[in-house]
Simulated scan of single mutants.
Amino acid sequence: MPMVLPVSIEFRLPEGWYAVPPDQVGAPDVAFVARHPQPDAGFTANITVDGDFRPDASALAEIADESVQRMREIAESLWVTGRDEIGSVDAPGLTQELALSAVAGGVRRDLVQSQVYLSMLDIDDPSKRSVIRLALTATADQFDSVLEDFREFVRTVRPETRTSA
């Protein structure tokens, strides 16, 4: 069963990308998976969304470090190739780029993952903080061609707005 995000969000997928059930692609620890329509050398670029309620005061950089540690458990090698703080004091975020070598689909692959961490406060109780992670994973060869799609996706992510009928 896919994870449930601690806060409801809405977003729009880039043209051509399509959603798949996380369980069907072996990703039960995420809430959402989208795939690119054109695989590269047998690997399909994907966007995943996951998140956690974070009652602690951990900085987004610390949370990103935790993600790197988890990735090291499955990757043969991994390098953090970039990290930047984004957003504002009211809506902080962090981007992180990883280069890794891992076995995917039974084949050793050189992959790149771009991660975006968004801190969101509960509207009713600002002491409750959730951190949402958006990630693009692609082969090193395909990464540059799908990165702008991912950036477009990230720009559309926002807390879900509820309208009364």
Rank of each mutant, 00 (worst) to 15 (best):
S101C: 10
V30S: 11
S127W: 00
A140E: 14
A19R: 12
A45T: 02
V20K: 11
V107N: 01
D110Y: 04
D65A: 15
D124M: 10
R12T: 14
F53T: 10
V112R: 15
D52C: 05
S164G: 11
L111K: 07
D29C: 00
L94P: 03
V131S: 06
L121S: 12
G105C: 04
E97W: 04
D65W: 11
P6G: 11
R162K: 13
V107W: 00
R108F: 00
D149L: 02
E10D: 12
R70L: 13
S77Q: 12
M1P: 13
P39G: 07
D110A: 15
P39V: 05
I63S: 04
P14M: 06
V146A: 09
L60Y: 04
F150P: 01
I132A: 06
H36P: 00
P92I: 08
E73F: 01
D84Y: 05
V131R: 03
I47Q: 07
F150I: 02
R158M: 09
V107K: 11
T137E: 07
V131T: 09
S8E: 15
D23T: 07
T163Y: 11
Q24T: 12
K128P: 00
L78S: 10
V146E: 05
F32N: 03
V131W: 10
R158V: 07
E66C: 02
R35F: 04
V112M: 11
R72V: 08
P21L: 10
D124G: 11
M120P: 01
E85L: 05
A34I: 07
F32Q: 04
G87K: 04
R35W: 00
D65F: 09
A102F: 03
I132F: 10
L147I: 02
E66H: 09
L111R: 02
V68C: 05
V49E: 08
G82L: 11
S58A: 15
F143R: 02
G42T: 05
T95M: 08
E10P: 00
V131H: 05
T44Y: 03
S127P: 00
V20I: 12
D110K: 14
P21G: 06
R35H: 10
G42K: 08
I123Y: 07
S164L: 13
L111Y: 02
V116H: 12
D56E: 14
L134S: 06
A91L: 11
M71S: 14
L134K: 06
V116E: 10
A138S: 14
A140M: 07
T156L: 05
R83M: 14
I86R: 13
D144C: 00
L98Y: 09
V20M: 07
P55Y: 06
V103T: 13
W79Q: 14
S119R: 14
G93N: 01
Q142Y: 01
R133E: 08
L111N: 04
L136R: 08
E66K: 11
L13Q: 05
D29A: 12
T139W: 02
Q38A: 12
R109C: 04
V49Q: 03
T44H: 03
M1L: 09
M3E: 13
A135T: 14
D141Q: 14
P92H: 07
M71K: 13
R83Q: 15
A61S: 15
W17K: 08
A99Y: 01
V103L: 03
P126T: 08
